[in-house]
């Protein structure tokens, strides 16, 4: 489980690198994208976890994002928890193939961004119209993050294979220890 947590946090750090290379256009007078590499990693990780583990990972990721990136408090922690509920509800209807993973991740990401936009609209932080938000921000964000999901799909498979092999190795060693104890 620790490896999964570290994997998600590393993906958020990669987000920071991508955002430094491709900074957001504050004037919003051209199309730009928001890197959600960490969020996609979170979505692909929590769908295979138990509910409590997924919830804890969402809360910790949200708080990490709040403190480290946005200097807010509990905003993204709550948003990521809602995201966790959404993913857990939808994962039952979706398989684990690449296409289905992309669909799940992109739909969850869009819902999360929509929630954030609604929150910012409600608090008066933005008056950007919905159509402008879709055109200038969301369109390219979703397109670019599809690429990220494809990369993450393979990375999570490598990670899960590594964890599986490690578990097999531990179980083999346990069997050997049991045999030695019983004197065989």
């Amino acid at each position: 489980m620790i490896i999964q947590y570290l994997f998600v946090f590393a993906c958020f750090l990669i987000d920071g690198v991508i955002e430094t290379c491709f900074p957001i256009n504050f004037a919003m007078n051209s199309v730009y994208f928001v890197s959600c590499f960490g969020v996609c990693a979170l979505i692909l990780t929590i769908r295979k976890m138990d509910f409590i583990d997924a919830l804890l990972l969402s809360i910790l990721s949200g708080m990490f994002y709040d403190f480290f990136f946005t200097n807010s408090f509990l905003v993204y922690a709550v948003i990521f928890v809602i995201l966790c509920f959404i993913v857990k509800a939808w994962q039952k209807h979706v398989g684990e193939s690449l296409l289905e993973s992309i669909i799940l991740a992109i739909c969850s990401l869009f819902t999360m961004q929509l929630l954030t936009y609604g929150l910012m609209w409600f608090t008066g932080s933005t008056r950007v119209s919905f159509s402008s938000w879709i055109y200038y921000r969301m369109f390219l964000t979703l397109v670019v993050n599809v690429g990220f999901v494809i990369v993450l799909y393979f990375l999570t498979n490598v990670r899960d294979d590594y964890l599986r092999m490690r578990d097999v190795k531990i179980r083999k060693e346990e069997k050997l220890s049991t045999r030695r104890l019983s004197g065989r």
């Binding site: 920071g16 955002e19 256009n25 928001v34 990136f69 946005t70 954030t116 910012m120 932080s125």
Partner: peptide, 10 residues
């Protein structure tokens, strides 16, 4: 540091 999400423009 820049606002990573672009909402607060700070």
């Amino acid at each position: 540091a820049r606002d990573t999400q672009g909402w607060s423009n700070i």
